[in-house]
Amino acid sequence: MLIKVSGVKKIYEVGIQKIEAVAGIDLEIERNEYVAIMGPSGSGKSTFMNLLGCLDTPSAGDYWLNGKEVSNLSDDELARIRNREIGFVFQTFNLLPRATAAQNVELPLIYGGIPADERRRRAEEVLESVGLTDRAKHRPNELSGGQRQRVAIARAMVNRPSIILADEPTGNLDSKTGIEIMSLFDKIHQAGNTIVMVTHEKHIAEYTRRVIRLLDGKIESDVRTG
């Protein structure tokens, strides 16, 4: 079992109001699954993804990642998990604007303490796997949206994480580019990686093998498709 979540809640307090953004979720994800999380806006998809990605800790409940309880870790330990176990892909790419593609890809390796020559080698390798060898020296503003997202995907994979989390990775792309990105994810999944992806679009969700629907912070349905 790669991920086991039980009774997880995230409660935001805004003034006197309490918002249960995640209102008690139980979920298990196996290694090499390819999961889509869907649901209406405000249903808690992003909040749940942040919990899975150890960017945030749950208000209640337990979260085991790779057999390790991670819901009560210190900030430093969470940083270490994010570095080693998790690869993030964001809707808005979130690349460092002044850094080249290669430097962006190297970022997790720096915080992982990998020496420079090995970093360079691994960044080259993973940039090649997303088809951007010739763009390694380009900065984000010299790349198209699809290329930027591929750099972000390369960055997410470079530390060989246990799981890749993508929050609406095609949300800022046109549909043709979106399809290109999805086939890249397909390839990554086939290489043995585990992917959890938030999406609004049905045709994107169709690439995945399991669709979980959220409503008001709870799982409404969980359907395996492949």
Binding site: G53, L55, D75, D76, A79, R80, R82, N83, R84, F88, N94, L95, L96, L107, P108, Y111, G112, R155, N159
Partner: peptide
């Protein structure tokens, strides 16, 4: 940028 670095595994001390 700070958010990105943190997501990539930078600790607060980093």
């Amino acid at each position: 940028e700070v958010g990105i670095r943190m997501a990539m595994g930078a600790r607060r001390t980093d």
